[in-house]
Nucleic acid binder design. Sequence first.
DNA 1: TTAACTGCAAATCTTTTGCACAATC
DNA 2: GATTGTGCAAAAGATTTGCAGTTAA
Lengths: 129, 129
Amino acid sequence: MTKQKKLVLDIAANSNAHLNAEEIFLLAKKEMPAIALGTVYRNLNILVEEGLLRRISIAGQPDRFDHVGDEHEHLICRQCGKLRDIRVDGILDKIKSATGEDVLSVSLSAYYICADCRRCLRHTDMTAN
Amino acid sequence: MTKQKKLVLDIAANSNAHLNAEEIFLLAKKEMPAIALGTVYRNLNILVEEGLLRRISIAGQPDRFDHVGDEHEHLICRQCGKLRDIRVDGILDKIKSATGEDVLSVSLSAYYICADCRRCLRHTDMTAN
DNA sequence: TTAACTGCAAATCTTTTGCACAATC
DNA sequence: GATTGTGCAAAAGATTTGCAGTTAA
């Protein structure tokens, strides 16, 4: 494991901020100014493949990266895109028994309108749409 | 609703093939040769926003589009990317009670290795990795 | 007529890749 | 010394957008 790869892993795994590649790159640059964005992408892909990081794909957003172990799902605001971790017990087993297949992993995203956005919407164009 | 929008909706909603924008565009062109790819993208976005289509986002793949009603989730092969519909009862309610939030929708993707790929892998480099 | 929508092409954004060089075993 | 990884820059792929022209209420 190279210095670059370790740095990328440290930043991505030790943040709860669901960072994307660009953000990880900017943080990595502080530690290692010569690191290239391509290197960050390359290592993120490798780390995901090795099972050391989890990739979160949300439509219209760049991929985000999350630590593994401590399995959790994501609650996403339809309005502002903010992400919150949630814990749901027994999902993997539920899917295994629903499908009868040897399911390796499950990724679940739930959508809602967060409190902030609910407040906003109430104060603006209630008549719109 | 314009002819173009209706055509896009018809193609996307009446196929079980989880088509992406490009594929929908090609099918639409047969019916309406002058239609533009940009128009397809624009209408897909509108139709998703209006709740008439569902968007399926999978890392590394272009977005796919699916009909609504008949709620189902997706089982995806890690190896070849093939998609299969699965039905899992009570997911939305489970997430609602797990979060205590007014969850609007849930999108769940489960990953496995499909039978075809299992067969392939068995016959090739069993010692690799 | 006027507002909304289209086709087209260029732009944008994210991610990947080729290549020469550097680091590591 | 060979292999593997890096930095850089260019390319690729998906999607969006500006604009002038078209369509349709």
